[in-house]
């Protein structure tokens, strides 16, 4: 891939969840979008790798063919890049939507594949709570029942449908 293609990849993938935005936002330079994009291409089928590259060109030149503006994505402010991607994701043409979705997948792979961002996302927090709970609880096995989860978990009464431990696990 050329240098300007890598630059487009960084600009486009970074525009799905820009630094400094509301909600979950990476710090500037925290996410390596180019590397994720290159890795995805390397492991994909030849057709999908080609599709990723076509997606890059399609989105990078979208200001021209979608808005009639003589510019590439590099010339747009970050908010306009996000707006452009929103329009491409809901475009009436199947191929445009799908190719943009490929870019979005590369972006989320990079974003949430970054350990610091994933930690801030809170996605794993319930698991952390559950592990602590399961470590501190002591359950005595009941005769005739097999202890589930090494004896630390709540035992479902024999013969009953397994219970959900909603309150204990999801807090």
């Amino acid at each position: 891939m050329t240098r300007w293609e890598l630059s487009w990849a960084k600009q486009l993938l970074g525009a799905f969840a820009p630094s400094g935005g509301p909600g979950l936002a990476p710090l500037a330079g925290e996410v390596d979008y180019e590397s994720a994009f290159v890795r995805m291409r390397r492991h994909a089928t030849p057709l999908a790798a080609l599709g990723l590259r076509v997606a890059l060109w399609m989105a990078a030149l979208a200001p021209l063919w979608l808005w009639g503006r003589l510019a590439t994505v590099s010339k747009l402010a970050i908010e306009r890049r996000s707006e452009l991607l929103r329009q491409l994701l809901s475009h009436r043409t199947f191929a445009v939507r799908e190719l943009t979705l490929l870019l979005k997948l590369a972006a989320t792979m990079a974003l949430l594949g970054t350990p610091s961002v994933r930690a801030r996302s809170g996605y794993d927090s319930v698991q952390a709570v559950a592990v602590v709970e399961s470590n501190v609880r002591v359950k005595l096995p009941v005769l005739g029942q097999r202890p589930a989860n090494d004896g630390n978990a709540v035992l479902a009464p024999a013969g009953d449908e397994p219970r959900f431990d909603r309150e204990e696990r999801t807090g």
Binding site: F16, A17, G122
Partner: peptide
């Protein structure tokens, strides 16, 4: 989506 609304959902 993409951008602000998407990021709020990511949170």
């Amino acid at each position: 989506g993409a951008g602000e609304e998407f990021q709020r959902r990511l949170r």
